[in-house]
Design a protein around this nucleic acid. Structure first.
Lengths: 174, 174
DNA sequence: ATGAACATGTAAGTGGTTACATGATTGT
DNA sequence: ACAATCATGTAACCACTTACATGTTCAT
């Protein structure tokens, strides 16, 4: 899975701009994917050059022009190739867990601070994800709904674990 | 958190080689971190050059020589700076979740295959993680134990979710 | 006039991975 | 003889991010 595969998938539902895509990454996709403009725009240029998508400049009222892209037949083929390839292993990297692993080398108060800030952050993420969920769930496909639920449940589970962990750490003497 | 921080943390417990570190990444760290030899060896060279660690060549019986590294006072300072810096946000990227998001574009059987293979893979990971846990938990610090439990519980939760999801997908007509 | 949201793009840098290359030693 | 494990290293590549650069439009 690279940015090209993701872009093709999004365009299958209808034409959109690079800016629109970034919005999607920051909402529905935020739990399991992200890409910056520095990835999105050059990728779109390359994909147009390769004939996977076509560009159309759209004049908007009250807003700057935007480049709206649509997927070509060739793009559809490339997307289907991706969807039938081997699933890549998940990549997860956590600074919090690494620090927990080395937690014995810092004061208990420092560790408590890490937990508190991480719980806050994850609770915000959970709110953000679940706020859009209700209308989303009615409109979308069963697998898309499952995908959103996976994110919310994992986040809820992580929050519960961290809260339990925080209580355990606080209960420690010294 | 980069490879340098992780290496420093590991060396605080005692000297070790690049090869040893890779073993650790593949066992205890496997849930939340990994690095290839192509990262480890060049990083060790650079850190030695920077005075964060020292190298000693150790002759072994029945095995090739190995370069064993130890952390210096300067290395300790660098590690403590890391431990007191801002926690970096987690990075998670999932090909499975991305495909679930686009699941409506492929046959139900394809989606079922994804779930089955992913459940297998995660169950193996869970076995691997929990196999080493018992002795590990007695020996290690409370935060290190919490770190290992986080990995196991998250994995167990993911497996339960995927099994439930698989049943839902199978129940779908068409 | 000033900031926020909309919109696109590039250049330099980063932090890795993959594949390759080498070689010792042990067990089968 | 051959595979497996132990052990180190490099070169080429890759997919990104960050910071910069530019400009429109709208609301205050």
């Amino acid at each position: 899975m690279n940015s090209q595969d993701v872009i093709l998938g999004m365009l299958l539902k209808g034409p959109m701009s690079g800016y629109d895509m970034k919005q999607v990454f920051q909402s529905v996709f935020s739990y399991f994917y992200d890409a910056s403009y520095g990835t999105i725009y050059p990728t779109l240029s390359r994909m147009e050059k390769d004939g996977l998508i076509t560009k159309e400049s759209v004049v908007q009222e009250g807003k700057p022009n935007k480049n709206v892209y649509a997927v070509t037949a060739q793009g559809r083929v490339a997307f289907m190739q991706y969807m039938h390839s081997e699933i890549e292993p998940e990549s997860f990297r956590s600074d919090l867990l690494m620090r927990m692993f080395f937690g014995e080398f810092v004061d208990k108060e420092v560790v408590i601070g890490w937990f508190e800030r991480e719980i806050d952050k994850k609770e915000q993420q959970y709110q953000q994800l679940s706020s859009g969920y209700q209308e989303f769930a009615r409109l979308c496909s069963p697998t898309k709904r499952l995908c959103a639920e996976y994110g919310m449940e994992s986040l809820a589970h992580a929050i519960q674990f961290l809260k339990k962990g925080l209580r355990e750490i606080r209960a420690l003497e010294a």
